[in-house]
Design a protein around this nucleic acid. Sequence first.
RNA 1: GCCGGGAUGGCGGAAUUGGUAGACGCACGGGACUCAAAAUCCCGCGCCCUUAAAAGCGUGAGGGUUCGAGUCCCUCUCCCGGCACCA
Length: 864
Amino acid sequence: MLASQYRPQEIEKQAHLEWEASGAHRAMEVPGKPKYYCLSMFPYPSGKLHMGHVRNYTIGDVLTRYHRMRGYNVLQPMGWDAFGLPAENAAMANGVPPAKWTYDNIAYMKKQLKSLGFAIDWERELATCKPSYYRWNQWLFLRMLEKGIVYKKTGVVNWDPVDQTVLANEQVIDGRGWRTGVMVEKREIPMYYMRITDYSEELLAALDTLPGWPDRVKTMQANWIGKSHGVNIGFPYTLDGKRQVLRVFTTRVDTLMGVTFCAVAAEHPLASAAAKDNSKLAAFVDECKRGSVMEADLAQMEKKGMATGLFVAHPLTGKQIEVWVGNYVLMSYGEGAVMGVPGHDERDFAFAKKYGLAIEQVIEVAGKPYCMAAWQEWYADYGVCVNSGKYDGMDFDRSVDAIATDLKAVGLGEKQTTWRLRDWGISRQRYWGTPIPLIHCAGCGDVPVPDDQLPVVLPEDCVPDGSGNPLNKRAEFVNCACPKCGKPARRETDTMDTFVDSSWYYSRYACADNNQSMVDDRVKYWLPVDQYIGGIEHAILHLLYSRFWTRVMRNLGLLQFDEPFTNLLTQGMVLNEIFFRKTGEGRSTYFNPADVDVRVDEKGARTAATLKSDGLPVESAGIGTMSKSKNNGVDPQALIERCGADTARFFMMFAAPPEQTLEWSDSGVEGAYRFLRRLWRFGADRHDAISKGIKGTAHCSKLSENQAAARREVHLVLKQANYDFSKFQFNTVASAGMKILNALERLPESETTVNTEGFSILLRLLCPLTPHVCFHLWSALGYGKNVFSAAWPEPEARALEQDEMELVLQISGKTRGSIRVPSQATREQIEVLAHRSPLAMKYIVGQNVKKVVVVPGRLVNIVI
RNA sequence: GCCGGGAUGGCGGAAUUGGUAGACGCACGGGACUCAAAAUCCCGCGCCCUUAAAAGCGUGAGGGUUCGAGUCCCUCUCCCGGCACCA
């Protein structure tokens, strides 16, 4: 018997018990059975789940359950990206060690994930902050060190001079330290790097082997790697009596004859040399070195520069060219120096205009006038060389070849391929991360920790206070013996970038219990990941580092594949409304949408919003991602407790397609809940009839016209829904479920045959989305024991057949109505029927028919 | 600034390849049931003119290709994601 009322809490709890008892979500290696590894990006244990998690893991769970029903052996694991800055911030705020805070959060969030009914194999759970995981970070780091993939060099960091600490970019606000408020400085410190640039070519080329990745992600990665072809040019000069060469890289050597200055980065050796006895320049160079290291900030800074007083010679004409220091020149790209061609480059133009430097046209584009006199014209288009001596009249390709040849002849340049991608600096001057397994010895230098001393265990009871890395204050951690000479030595206290942790965790899930090796043979069975799901914000860094790391492991013989993620789904963000009031000092107070009343007019359009507590108006700042700072988050817990996990899941899937942003809506949730109540009631009302009814296919021949029409509709919607499933369009799958229920509800209750079949289709179609209610109804109505072992529903061709079909009738491209024609009608017959239809007559009598377009199954267009 | 993406009723969204724009849901309006409320059910719902029908307009803005454009091309505006130490 079925209770008349839908009580999600009860049936969900019961379902969880049954699934747990039967081990329904365990994934075991079954040789020969097709496997499907479905992975969602693991969460950072920030405290409690947010809606972005719920969305991400619901998408993953829908795919997991769908593929199980399709006969795959599916693995869906879960773990914790447990190292990172927020734990240290929480420690500073509450005095709790990051470890305790992290483990408490994991326990709570795990409970929440379980309450959502995800088909996760919890036996494979991992947390990156556990020595059993990060020891393999350390182990692989040492292998990379041996192979020369890891190396040491200096890198630039944000330095807070008051707290005497390195700041993350996130901790720099408007160029100042977040806690001290003082201007941040750039500081160079020694760091360890991974040679991801050794893999530039492969990482770029292999994007073509990833048809299952969204094009936008592949484009972003390709642009990030940034392969460009150009020429490396030398501008000779003499300094301290020695002949030297200033090297620049350009992709536009065709504009070489238009160079009117050169500009170098503040960190460039030439800038330092010139600043030595020029205090004004030294001050300017210092100024450039202050402020944030973020590229976005640098690129938006006002272009500033100062002449060095040094001159270099044009490599082909010998003309003297002044060298400037420019804050828009990045030391990290190319040679840290550029040739200035203000006539044909936007940034050079802005710079030249500001400092009154010469602008010369050396490229002409047909049909595009160049108005030098106005001093506001430049263009970067490709064209033909002019004012360029022997190169005049040459197009881009020819001039590049000619100029490169001439440069080579004088030993001042050759063609070069340059990459935008930089090596990956992994050192972090922070506590809550994987210790870098090195020991610094006065006599032996940097000594790797021997494998048998791994893992280097991070003490779990430190409490950071914002002034540097607490590991430095731990004598028992820092002081150690040199593994080579045995003398007292100093342990490295830098930890690894947390992107290291997330670069290979997907492999570890296959063998999380192995404490003898990083990976084992089970990886061969499960990997690569068939479907990876996560936020679009990870499109570049995390995914690129993972692709790199996979190749490193492959080259060490640990993995047998090139690409870790065969298919990628990038999910959109979850947004909510933002309400605020301005307070005195121009600051804003934000109010949670749950505390705001919104009034509407008789058409449903919004008229006003007021705060519930005081009834006074609040302002709307539109919609934005759910965040603490905008106070617009919705706690999934309250929702689950009130409406159940199925409602939360169904709303998430219905409100928007997975890749798009999703806007939160309380009434939308209410609608989802209403639908599930209707679904339940349909089953409860027809319980007796359906449980006694004949299961299986309803036979067309025995059906009335009414029944056949309803059945046709169900199968038609199913056909579309199956297509949508294959495209991961879960929002239209959800709406297909609603359409099927609408169709079945329109049928009289006595139509048991069609109802029984239709409802079984509906339950199977929806069970990946709302597993609990479908699981319960399926067995309660006697369809079988377990809906997840049932066959996936397929539309029946015979159910879709019909004698007549409707075609749209257009007159000269304007839709005027529709006509009915026999399904088998030929193009000619359709044309005749269309002409004879009263609707067409009305428009074509007395007109000259120029042309008739017939699109089979769609429309007829009579052009007059 | 650079790279990537987006824009469709009051709202979320739908519309396989160019072929009836607005499926499905929310909100809103009207009605039924009820002592009443909640729940539930029925009807309506892009804009404009209108008693109604018909016509006209309509997918961010402007232009183009086509018998036909939300969908393809060009130009522009606004919004969102990333920019290497947030994860």
